[in-house]
Design a protein around this nucleic acid. Structure first.
Lengths: 194, 194, 194, 194
DNA sequence: ATTTAATCGAGACGGTACGTCGAGTCTTTTT
DNA sequence: AAAAAGACTCGACGTACCGTCTCGATTAAAT
């Protein structure tokens, strides 16, 4: 049985919940993260301010919940078995996500906020869409188990260059995913990780 | 002649200027970027609010001016001529800067802000301490001219992994600068950039 | 038969009703009228908020119901037949009620609210504990019927001075009930009301 | 010299001050005391909310300042020297003030609030328009010095009946000022206060 | 020496969002 | 029905920071 135990009272409004998540998605695109306030979110969602605060404590928390599923989906690739192809398409997905997707914009805003807000930093480290997706791809490509620190470092090697490129404001058109995938393979081979 | 033409009136107070820059440095360490307001800056500097606004328009601008010199200095290394050693000490300096230095904290805060504030993004792209320092080191190591896009990409290769590691909240102790330097050299060799 | 016709459904809980009235009494003493909210009343009574609203519309209404009986009792004196003694003990009871009794505090709060809330004003004019008690004492003392306007004026003469003294924040210790009773008798004699 | 010493900063806006006091006067008449909020005051005055809070802490404080001058003026009578006439015209003024004047409505609202708000009670006891005016009239009528407690009691005798009559919601038309003045004189004579 | 003009400290101003609180109402299940 | 529980809308609360403004006082170079 998937029903919660009844604890009395009016049940949470699913309609309000989705209206708020949608409002956040829309506002991020329309006015940007900085100009998106708790007030504007509640008004856009047609919901009282109190209802927003009842379930989330920051706009970062709402934005995270609103974009987490999209992020995971956009960073998932279908594995073909060819390492270079798979890594290339992952880097392509990564660049597309960070540079062009609304969910990626949300991620960048959150990661930016995390640099000076501990609560947001904890939010992101609890569930890290970039790290998770990269770890998955690398494990598939390597084909065997790897020590956890090693895979964390491999993750940074794979994601880092594109990540810095885009967050530092460089033009994403200058990135060449295939070359980045090749570099990653060189490094693996040199270290004989597999 | 580097003096402005005289337009009458009391000259700008150098004392006020340095008091403000120092106040920003102090407050960043003491209360963090988010809690640092224009009001608290002016009060800490013992200066009127208007005086701050007269010369800078955002706290980001002040912080940038206050930390730019420190950043450049902390990211400068002395070249020995040994590529692996030089790259290793650069990565060490980079990690020290990003993870442990007040100037690095300022840089991370500004880069975070740049993700959702165009004005800050332009500030950073006008003078990019990470890119500049990496470019310099790479040019010294390679020893000859390189096409500008190539060097930009090499920059991302060198900086990216540490950058992602730290900004995503991972423990800087897990980074191994020598390995990152080696990886960079593998990539260069594989591409025969020199 | 004084029972309502049965209309089906669960009957009103007498337990809830008295719990609410007691809660209001307690809260008035503990936190005062202003800080007493419908929420705090329901929580103190261990009753749902809706149950309070189902039977009363304002906290003033509850407080009035909770204190009316006490007020009437505290303002009732036993008649001895000696006019000066009876009037004196009435004024004493009046001062004790207004200045020191919880029911009197409730009355003052309600009368205060009545100055800017029409609903409360109507509540009080429907059943006026001060007027009623004074009218009774005066009728006993005079010993015969009197025109209704006359008795209303006599009421104000008897109650007014103490009432103003206490409501304007003066120290009740400064009041001398016997003198007030004497004054009232002077006035009656001068007008030869009896 | 009636100029304050200069303490730096932009001077207080007299325009804002009077706009706020006028707004309170208007709102009291239009919507009543209870519905008059700090927000509506600031909006009506065309002033920011902060400006209201900068100079007053409660709406009671503003209302008091806005009506104090009117109250004093409305309760001042010209002394003719004939005790009965003077006392009668004072009672008339008192009834007119309490029952029909906007300033009187303000006074009643404040006195009501004072019954459950200590801050308001202190406000009123600091400067009591009713007490002050009655004291003045009584001193003129008696024509000589009187012990301070005596005059306080005389004050309550003079004001009390009308005060109770009106605050308890009775029709002011039922009051007969001349009779009240006469009663007051009877009491004085009986006590031989003069 | 006086004038001119931009600076400085101080602090009031209009705005706007903050996060909280109380008001009534509504929607569940249980009695 | 009535009751308990608690989510909901609404709107005011008092505070904080924003960026602008208006004061008198200061400080130089130009007159």
């Amino acid at each position: 049985m998937d029903k919660e135990l009844y604890h009395g009272g009016r049940p949470r409004s699913e309609q309000a919940r989705t209206a708020i998540l949608n409002a956040v998605d829309d506002l991020l695109v329309e006015v940007g993260y900085a100009a998106m306030t708790m007030k504007s979110i509640s008004e856009r969602a047609g919901v009282s301010r109190q209802t927003v605060y009842r379930w989330w404590s920051h706009k970062a928390e709402i934005l995270f919940e609103a974009s987490a599923a999209d992020a995971a989906e956009e960073l998932a690739i279908t594995i073909t078995g060819n390492p270079l192809d798979d890594l290339t398409s992952y880097v392509e997905a990564l660049v597309r996500f960070l540079a062009h997707s609304p969910a990626g914009a949300a991620y960048r805003a959150l990661l930016g906020e995390a640099q000076h807000d501990l609560a947001v930093a904890e939010l992101l480290s609890a569930k890290d869409p970039l790290g998770d997706s990269a770890r998955f791809v690398i494990e598939q490509v390597i084909g065997k188990e790897v020590r956890s620190l090693r895979i964390e470092q491999a993750t940074s090697l794979l994601i880092g260059p594109s990540f810095f490129w885009i967050l530092s404001g460089r033009d994403p058109a200058g990135l060449v995913p295939r070359e980045l995938a090749e570099n990653f393979i060189y490094d693996l081979q040199a270290r004989q990780l597999r």
